[in-house]
């Protein structure tokens, strides 16, 4: 009786061979993990976010809705780097009225080319789940972001389990974005609570890179924890922001005004 580890290795090897014989490209079965390039976080996640799974993101407070969607798009940009394809964004009409519709130019600057984004607007939350399942089963899709209204109670254990199976079959990357945190159990691989964190000013006192205060509340492959990350949109990568608070020169002999940077 061979050890189960060796058996699963043989299985993986056989799958590899069969995939090669059938003419399918390799990356359909095995996809690389979506890495954060932040050692502490990647270690906790066991090498990065699981590619063939569904992950959940929610803002810590309604004020941080923008930060939560920003984090979701940043993850989608990372997934697109490891496996290029289309990014599909599914939302109800009500959801786009709450936080606004995705803006093409902003998305392009942030990290996802707007030519590779597909926006789907559906009438009801249950249609969001249906469309997500269809999109996860499609090859050529790098990431699927589904926005559910309020706490997304419709994405319960059975629904998320179904989505997770669909994602595993094609090793696609799915993200469920809720508008409120929830304690509902789900079959997602990880669950994040995102809040915006005050960023570090740049040399001229202007805006620094966007900073997120992340709380990993559920992790199938390791511990949970809190992290503070910055998103560098030029390099499309996260960076560790261990420094908390802002580093701003105290104006001693100037009037107390918020530091502003004038346009050129």
């Amino acid at each position: 009786m061979r050890a189960s580890g060796a058996v699963s290795e043989d299985l993986a090897g056989l799958r590899h061979q069969i995939a090669g014989l059938e003419g399918r490209a390799r990356y359909q079965e095995i996809a690389p993990a979506v890495q954060f390039a932040v050692p502490a976080l990647d270690a906790v996640l066991g090498g990065g976010l699981e590619p063939g799974a569904v992950h959940e993101v929610a803002p810590a407070a309604p004020l941080h809705a923008g930060a939560a969607t920003g984090f979701a798009f940043a993850l989608a940009a990372l997934a697109d780097r490891t496996r290029p394809g289309q990014t599909i964004h599914i939302a109800t009409g009500f959801g786009t009225a709450e936080t606004g519709a995705p803006y093409g130019l902003g998305l392009s600057h942030y990290g996802t080319a707007m030519a590779r984004v597909l926006l789907v607007q559906v009438p009801r939350p249950i249609d969001v789940l249906w469309a997500m399942e269809e999109a996860l089963g499609c090859r050529g899709v790098a990431a699927v972001i589904a926005m559910l209204p309020s706490d997304g109670a419709i994405a319960d254990l059975t629904a998320t389990r179904r989505l997770a199976l669909a994602a595993r079959e094609r090793a696609s990357f799915g993200l469920i974005l809720r508008q409120r945190t929830t304690a509902q159990p789900s079959a997602a691989a990880t669950r994040w609570e995102v809040a915006a964190a005050p960023s570090r000013a740049d040399a001229f006192g202007g805006l620094g890179p966007a900073r997120f205060a992340l709380d990993l509340t559920k992790n199938r492959r390791g511990r949970c924890g809190r992290f503070v990350l910055e998103w560098n949109h030029h390099e499309r990568a996260f960076a560790d922001a261990a420094l908390s608070g802002r580093v701003v020169a105290a104006p001693v002999d100037r009037p107390a005004r918020p530091p502003l940077r004038r346009a050129g």
Binding site: G70, F73, G104, H109, L207, P209
Partner: peptide, 29 residues
């Protein structure tokens, strides 16, 4: 609508870019 869009869209460069993007991710209609 997706079936009407034939050519790929490219984002024009904006001179305002710094460490933070110049345009927002979400825009209100």
């Amino acid at each position: 609508p997706a079936h009407l869009v034939k050519e790929e869209a490219t984002a024009p460069l904006l001179g305002q870019d710094s460490l933070a993007p110049a345009r927002p991710l979400h825009l209100f209609a």
